[in-house]
Design a protein around this nucleic acid. Sequence first.
DNA 1: ATTCTTCTTTAGAATAATTATAAAAAACTC
DNA 2: GAGTTTTTTATAATTATTCTAAAGAAGAAT
Lengths: 136, 136
Amino acid sequence: MSSKQEFIKKLRNSNLRPTKQRINICDVLFNRDKTFHFTINDLFNLIKDKTGQKVSLATVYNTVHAFHKKGYLKEIPINSNQTYFDTNVSDHHHFFDVKEEKLIDLKNEDVGPIDIQKSIPGKKIKSVEVLVKLED
Amino acid sequence: MSSKQEFIKKLRNSNLRPTKQRINICDVLFNRDKTFHFTINDLFNLIKDKTGQKVSLATVYNTVHAFHKKGYLKEIPINSNQTYFDTNVSDHHHFFDVKEEKLIDLKNEDVGPIDIQKSIPGKKIKSVEVLVKLED
DNA sequence: ATTCTTCTTTAGAATAATTATAAAAAACTC
DNA sequence: GAGTTTTTTATAATTATTCTAAAGAAGAAT
């Protein structure tokens, strides 16, 4: 299946029609080997750079949120003025280089199993995220 | 030592003069048994409620940031439009009840040791934070 | 205590990320 | 192709946070 067909499938699954703009967003997001960490603003600029076509900021927001809701993108819990997303939606953790404001993946093996020994009645665990901040 | 004397000490250590406003902020922050998780806006409103005196938002921001810099407050990495702080500056982790937008402390024993097996040349680990999201 | 200097408070303006709006354009249905 | 629904877009609105500058309070020196 060509990557364009995959994009269309992802969009349809997310209840989005496959428009030119959204295909361009997909092209930047999913047409890559390695995991991709980004802010909306990063993505907005990369679309212009890579596809030569401008997509409005509102469309970028809407599309990213739809993908996030569907599970094609993961939001990374981090303190920053901007929200960070990750195309790697598997269960994994992150380094955050505070100085450079850059994220680096940590494989699950790099951290080992995390066993939460406390529970809250009526609540279940949705996710466990480890953030390792790095300094020089 | 009275709590007021402690507040003054904390303020001096943070390079802040002990003003009436800042003492009121300290009163809400540090005059309590349990750990306190808050946003700036929470704190701003609690000062009015508890002390009956209004402190300007700018002063709350400035004071909280000075305490954070000095290590009297800890910032909690979490995805939210607002920044969360914690008066418990010891090494510990958090539950986050997504629905209620509420944080709950996890003792270190509740999580167990976290052994990061990967390292980045030239960088050292500043902190390791575990965030466990809860759902119903 | 008085004067002088430095720091602080404050309201309001500025900034920046995000969300909402509504009219024009594109996609889909028949 | 005609009609309906969705989408895009520029722009406005919202919200958290930071900045600013003038008036007030704290600290130091006398």
